[in-house]
Design a protein around this nucleic acid. Structure first.
Lengths: 253, 253
DNA sequence: CCATCTTTGTGCACGCGTTCACAAAGACAT
DNA sequence: ATGTCTTTGTGAACGCGTGCACAAAGATGG
């Protein structure tokens, strides 16, 4: 449920629906876990449960990739891990730069989940001269004056913006001018980018506000007797994974 | 573009579509900026541009809240700020606990965007005894042994999970048992929760993987002549704000 | 008071995504 | 080989969300 993607018109990248692409990493994570336990095959039912989705949806998702299952048996875990990784482009190395090494930027730099998926933190960039040279997560922070050179020297095409809102658009413009074509934006601003550049936004404040909306709704429901759901008809299984699966967020306005 | 919300069945909370709810914080942010500049009214066109959405969509969104505009003039900024705040439940105070004070948890605790929207960090909780008492962002970290008491004493209904993946489900279960009904999950796991509890997931790894997919596609398009889109038909305006607004993310698998 | 101009609010059509339900395909046992 | 049983892959229906395009509403000027 991320916060914010603004739907792209009709991208349907190469036939694979955007909604499916967004779920592939989920399947990949579940499959990786199975792989580590040396499980050879899974049924769509099992895998769907592990990924927290509907089994029919999962099968349809996989059908966009091709017919990788065996009827009566299920899917070969290793093979599927490979196919999804390849489809997502994770079989290659993606150098990433993080701009804005404040609390969040530092947390992202320290975040261990990059390397495990083909992402490599190529550089940390900050506008504060006092930060320059200071190592964060073992990587020395570089000054933003050198942004263009860093991007080009490392062949970076993915940038992460973790600056204050006021600086985000300027940083974005420079990243794009230097050749970055995919941006993950943690700053609470709407970024303007030219055609061909992808932006994904993560906005904590928005996520919290959405939760507050539903929270308020639940509270009001109990008070006013409007025939709402009994409240505690707890079902044992998972299901209900938040409204919309669509949008993520970090950092408020 | 968040990562993951798993759509809720048919929630349509009180008639307001989920997609609209997800955009209200966006409008609110833009309106707040206008309010600070003492702008009295805005047209749907202007506000839509500021929020990065279609003006027809914005008008339709507002129509779910009621008719707050004046034809020929536009919307009253202050009034709209109030109405949206009220609708989102931001006129009340929301105590929030953050569980897992690692790099990310600390970054969240330091994050200034909470207070500005009615969210208050009521407590920081960590399982490491060495952290107990240590102040982070001016708030002393408390040990997770006291989790239930902290939740109840502060009347907390919203919890943020920033623990490692392995601990997330257990923490989630304890939060829910203690009375939390909304969870913002930064751990790369699918959480199982009973009916009535909302979960929103923020997963950095997933966001990056989605970007990588599109990045790979762009790269392959230029190389292999598969009749793809011309690639550089650059349009000058913004638009394209990432695929699928649905999902946000932080922390990989 | 009437005409004109601006901007809202919405009816309608379209497309994507989800889900159901089932036929086809293959494994496995006999 | 044949039959049974499991599980995939997908056709079809449905619902939500989006965007167009326009009528209604109100402001503004004469």
């Amino acid at each position: 449920m991320a916060t914010g993607r603004t739907h792209r018109p009709a991208t349907r990248s190469r036939g694979i629906p955007e909604a499916t692409v967004a779920r592939l990493p989920l399947y990949l994570r579940a499959l990786t876990a199975l792989s580590e336990r040396s499980v050879p095959t899974v049924s769509s039912e099992e895998l769907a449960a592990a990924a927290g989705v509907n089994s029919a949806k999962l099968r349809k998702d996989f059908s966009y990739l091709g017919s990788y299952g065996t009827r009566g048996v299920g899917y070969d875990v290793e093979y599927l891990v490979y196919q999804i990784s390849r489809e997502l482009g994770l079989t290659q190395d993606w150098p990433v730069v993080i701009v804005g090494i404040g609390n969040l930027g530092a947390a992202l730099a320290n975040y261990g989940g990059f390397a495990s998926r083909g992402f490599r933190v190529a550089a940390l960039i900050d506008a504060d001269p006092a930060m320059a040279g200071k190592p964060v997560a073992g990587i020395p922070v570089q000054h933003s004056d050198d942004l263009e050179k860093i991007i080009q020297d490392n062949g970076v095409s993915i940038g992460v913006i973790a600056t204050p809102a006021g600086a985000a658009q300027a940083v974005c413009d420079r990243l794009v001018a230097a050749g970055v074509t995919s941006i993950l934006n943690f700053a609470p601003t709407v970024l303007s980018v030219p055609e061909g550049v992808d932006v994904r936004k993560v906005d904590l404040s928005i996520e919290l506000q959405i939760l507050a909306f539903h929270e308020q709704r639940k509270a009001g429901e109990g008070a006013a007797s409007d025939g709402g759901v009994p409240a505690a008809a707890a079902r044992s299984d998972s299901a209900d994974q938040g409204p919309d699966g669509d949008m993520p967020a970090v950092m408020p306005a």
